[in-house]
Write a protein that binds this DNA or RNA. Structure first.
Lengths: 115, 115
DNA sequence: CTCCTACATATCGATCTGCTACATGTAGAA
DNA sequence: TTCTACATGTAGCAGATCGATATGTAGGAG
């Protein structure tokens, strides 16, 4: 009934999109599907977040795009990672790891740090 | 030289503050110190983020505050968790766990999903 | 005496980003 | 015909973090 809404913290969306795009050319709609699928429906990316993010990443030359027919025959915009994007993905991934570890440390305090 | 700047994604700060405040009354400055210390200097909370966050949390009745002299004798504002704050902390903690797991799944894709 | 650092709080404005709602259009199934 | 899946896009709002700036005390270095 009440599925908890997991909103994406700032910066997280870029990381996810870059990672998914790193696995080969894929269009926006597909990116959203994959994120949802791989995360077992935990992460759902609304279009209003997705497309602006894609445009952002393209403007910053982290992604490159071209129009090509999708599986269904209709034209879609396929994105692939640029070298710059690949570098950024690595940075972001490390940054996320640091953050996750640090937050884990703080949250671990609850049980009593010394335990 | 270039220490990587770990900026706090939206919402994360509240979680950290609530958690630290859960360990007993503490003033703002002390909260920042603790977060920095426990995270081994990975997480540093600027004043420009900290105090607005504290006011926010107080307005929402997640924290309660009172003026008391600190260890050094000067007056400081001590915060403690309200019952509502405790509930929120639990929610946020679970939410964070879900998010961290989901992001982990996506990032894990790099090595080859099936593996 | 003066300067600098640590303690302690606070606000303002810039900036970024994510979300809701809305708009467009095709194709196939019910 | 109506509804869903596919596929992209924009406008405007809401929310949060950050850097810069301000105030004031106390103690140690020079």
């Amino acid at each position: 009934m009440n599925e908890p809404k997991t909103e994406l913290p700032q910066g997280t969306l870029d990381l996810l999109v870059l990672q998914v795009a790193a696995n080969g050319p894929i269009h926006g709609y597909g990116i959203a599907q994959r994120i949802k699928q791989i995360s077992r429906d935990v992460l759902q990316v609304p279009q209003g977040s997705l497309y602006p993010a894609l445009h952002r990443l393209e403007n910053r030359k982290l992604l490159a795009a071209e129009w090509k027919p999708s599986d269904t025959g209709r034209d879609a915009r396929f994105y692939r990672l640029t070298p710059k994007g690949r570098a950024r993905l690595q940075e972001q991934t490390e940054s996320w790891a640091r953050l996750a570890e640090a937050v884990g440390l703080i949250l671990g305090t609850a049980g009593g740090g010394a335990r």
